[in-house]
C-alpha cells in the first residue's frame, strides 16, 4: 500500500485560540506509535505540512494544529467532507519504557501527541501525570481529555491566567517522576533536559520531505547526526545536546 492516501475530513473545529482539531477518516495501518506525524499536501503550496498525530483508531485519526502560516490557515477553513492528500506514519514515535511513575509533558501545540501516549501508558498500567503548559488561558486545550486518561493533570500558564503560574517544570517540582515523555518548544525541552530526569524529547523542525530524503532537518546528537524526521522526532535525553 502507498504511504500516501486520500483522507476525508470528518470534523474540523476550533478548540482554543488559533487552535483546531481535525478528525480524518481513512486507512491508519501505517501509524505504529504515539509521537509519529503525518505530512499534508495543500492546494497551491509546494511542500507538505508536518503535523503530529493526536490520536487514532482503525478508521480515523485526529490532529490538533495551530494556525501559524498559510498552510495551517488553509486547513482551518476546510469543512467536513473535504479531502486531503496525506503521507502517513512518519517518524519514530515514543517508546514505552519500563518505568512506573511517569509524566507526559506538553507545551502548546506540543501537547497533542502526548494524548495517545498517555493512553498507551495507562493501558500498560503506569501511573501517569500529565503536565500541560500554555502561554495564557485562551490557549489551553485538551485538559478534560487528559483528565479522562491520566492519574493526575496539571495545567500551567506563563502568566498565571489559568492553572499553575509558571512553566511545566514548575508543576513538576516535588512530584515523583522517574521518567517523562515530552513535546514542545525548544526552550521547554531544554528546561526539561536540565532537570536531569531521564526521558524522551520530541523535536520540531522545518522539514523538506519528512522521510529522510533531503537532510533538511539533521541535528547533532551525542550519538551522531540524526534526521529529526526519521531517527526522530523523538530522541532520548541522554543523546540530546543543546548548543549554548
Amino acid at each position: 500500500m502507498d504511504h500516501i492516501q486520500i483522507y476525508t475530513i470528518k470534523s474540523n473545529v476550533k478548540i482554543a485560540e488559533d487552535t483546531f482539531k481535525m478528525v480524518l477518516s481513512g486507512d491508519t495501518s501505517l501509524i505504529t506509535a504515539p509521537g509519529q506525524f503525518v505530512n499534508i499536501q495543500l492546494d497551491g503550496l509546494y511542500l507538505r505540512r508536518p503535523i503530529s498525530i493526536h490520536d487514532w483508531d482503525e478508521q480515523s485519526f485526529t490532529i490538533i494544529y495551530k494556525v501559524v502560516g498559510k498552510g495551517t490557515e488553509q486547513m482551518s477553513k476546510m469543512a467536513e467532507g473535504e479531502k486531503l492528500d496525506i503521507l502517513m506514519g512518519l517518524g519514530n514515535g515514543y517508546t514505552v519504557m519500563d518505568k512506573q511513575n511517569v509524566a507526559v509533558v506538553g507545551g502548546g501545540v506540543g501537547v497533542p501527541p502526548l494524548y495517545a501516549m498517555a493512553k498507551k501508558l495507562k493501558a500498560e498500567g503506569k501511573h501517569v501525570i500529565a503536565v500541560l503548559g500554555f502561554g495564557y488561558k485562551d490557549q489551553v486545550f485538551c485538559e478534560e481529555e487528559f483528565k479522562a486518561v491520566c492519574d493526575e493533570v496539571y495545567v500551567t500558564t506563563n502568566d498565571g491566567s489559568y492553572g499553575i503560574k509558571g512553566f511545566v517544570t514548575t508543576a513538576m517540582e516535588g512530584k515523583n517522576i522517574e521518567y517523562f515523555y515530552a513535546c514542545g518548544p525548544e526552550p521547554m525541552l531544554k528546561a526539561l533536559h536540565k532537570t536531569g530526569i531521564p526521558g524522551q524529547l520530541s523535536f520540531e523542525a522545518r522539514m523538506g520531505c519528512g522521510f529522510g530524503g533531503c537532510m533538511g532537518c539533521s541535528c547533532k546528537t551525542l550519538t551522531g547526526y540524526k534526521r529529526i524526521c526519521v531517527e526522530g522526532p523523538v530522541m532520548l535525553t541522554e543523546e540530546v545536546t543543546f548548543d549554548e
Binding site: L47, G208, C214, G216, S218, C219, K220
Partner: peptide, 10 residues
Amino acid sequence: YGNPLPRIAE
C-alpha cells in the same frame, strides 16, 4: 555535517 538549521524554506 553541513550547514546549521534552518536549511529549508518553501
